[in-house]
Every structure is written in C-alpha cells, then in structure tokens.
Design a protein around this nucleic acid. Structure first.
Lengths: 128, 128
DNA sequence: CGGCCGGTTCACCGCTTCTTCACCGGCGCT
DNA sequence: AGCGCCGGTGAAGAAGCGGTGAACCGGCCG
C-alpha cells in the first residue's frame, strides 16, 4: 500500500523499482537481480525501442562489450517468466538492429492497429 | 481481546502486534520474542519485499552487520512453525538478492490460481 | 546446582544465479 | 546459391546466497 507511488504499470504488469518487486496480474514474480534490473530498464522506456548499449548501461551499470550476449540471454529468461505469468500477452519485442521494446501486445499479429509506428523499423512480418 | 484495529491479517494468520499474539487458523502460535518481532516486521510490509537491513532494524532495533545470519535462522524457525500450523500455505518467500516477502500462497508454483484477487486493469492499451 | 530455553554463531551444503559457449534458423546482401 | 550478421535458445561451469542442523552461551526456574 505504501509502495505504489513509484510503481510502473505496463498492462497487467506492476513494477516496483525500489522494492525489487514485480506483480503480474497481481501475482508476485520471482526474478533474479539481473532479470529485474533489465525489466526496469525496459519499463523506464516502455513503448520505446531501447538500444542494447543503453539497456546494458542501465541494468548492468557497465559498458556493453562487443560479443556480449548477456542481454539476449536475460531477455529470453524474462520472456519465459512473463509468458508463464501472462500467457496471452507478449511484452518484450525485438527490433532487429535497433534493440528491444517493452509493451503489452496480444499474441499473433501486433499490427491490427499498433499504437506505435516506427519510422525506419523493418518489420519482419512480410511473409516472403 | 478484540483489538481488531491493530490486528494484521495475512491469509489465515491473525497477528496482534500489541498483544504478542499470533493466531494461525484460529490456534495460537507459540513464538519467541525474536520470532514474533520478525513476523510483525514482515506483516507490517506484507505483500512487499523487505530488505534484510530493514527487517533487522524493525525486529532487532539495531543495525544489521555484514555476515550476520540471524535473520536467516529466524526466518527458518518461523517457516517451520508456520508450516506446522498451516501446512498448505507458504507465507515467507525469499527473493534472492532482495529480501523476504510475506504473503499467503499455495505450495508449489503459482500458476493459474491467484491466491488473492487483484484488479489489474487488463488494458490492451490499444486505443490512444 | 542442574536443567531448560531462547538467542547467536558456526559450518556445511545445495540450489540459484550469472556468464560464456555452441549451435541454429532467418534474412539480407553479394 | 553462398556467406555473414543477428538474435533465439539450451547447456555447462563457477560463484554467490540462502537453508539448515548443531554447537555454544548466558539467563532463568525449579
């Protein structure tokens, strides 16, 4: 009750950066420190595409070295846990060559009427 | 007796901080002073993740020294007594790297049956 | 005086977490 | 068609953190 002032809401996700707590549909998620940091970094820029370097800087407090795949691994871990908590929504979206974007979108086609429009994003949906 | 104003309810737990009394499913628990203080500290922040330093400050009224494992030991003692009183619920949850959280949750993995209701606004946030 | 009880500290151990590697499929480019 | 870039994913290995039983201590009560 006291910790809602700093909560970030992303769809059914409720993130409390200062507490290390994430509620998914009301249920507490069990995230590791890294997973949580990464989610917070994405959440602070929710709706926008965040570059890998920025994510690493915000979540690892260090500089991303070439060849480091840590972010990919943790994005995957986060996706797994989020999907298991909220199976009907996709939260973390990949923008190849740009970075990741956090937003609650229904599975399947996120393009019926996307609230976002990316100017130069090459959407990989063009079926051959 | 009926000081309900200061009673903290956590699932089947009923905690009376000012009386030193804890009822688990109606039965009184026999807790030591430390155990009780720790439980109260957790209960006052129920649902939230409480850092070890904060728990120690609230329950021991002292500053947690590095390497002090007292909290771990007492969390364990509490878990044993709580589990023996209410075998079907887990109350104290560990969040590695963050702290502990008090909340009644069914054993196993929280999957498709939330222990509590949360009116998480399922906003598809499409409109805009 | 001896036993009991609660609190603290210690030691060991198992699970969790983090990092890195390897492999794969998709895609654009040559 | 072949190649290289990029991200997805599973796994291995090492390190960190927390769980747990027991020893150790001091106070209290019988």
């Amino acid at each position: 009750m006291r910790s809602e002032d700093d909560a970030i809401h992303v769809g059914a996700l409720e993130i409390h950066p200062s507490e290390g707590l994430v509620l998914a549909g009301g249920r507490a998620l069990k995230l590791s420190v890294r997973e949580f940091s990464l989610l917070v970094a994405l959440a602070r820029n929710r709706g926008a595409i965040v570059r890998r370097e920025d994510l690493f800087a915000q979540a690892w407090h260090d500089e991303l070295r070439p060849g480091d795949r840590s972010i990919d691994v943790y994005v995957h871990k986060l996706r797994v846990k989020l999907e298991q908590a909220l199976p009907d929504l996709a939260f973390i979206h990949t923008h190849v060559g740009f970075g990741y974007r956090l937003a609650p979108e229904p599975l399947g086609r996120p393009s019926a009427s996307p609230p976002f429009h990316i100017s130069a994003a090459p959407e990989p949906q063009a079926g051959a």
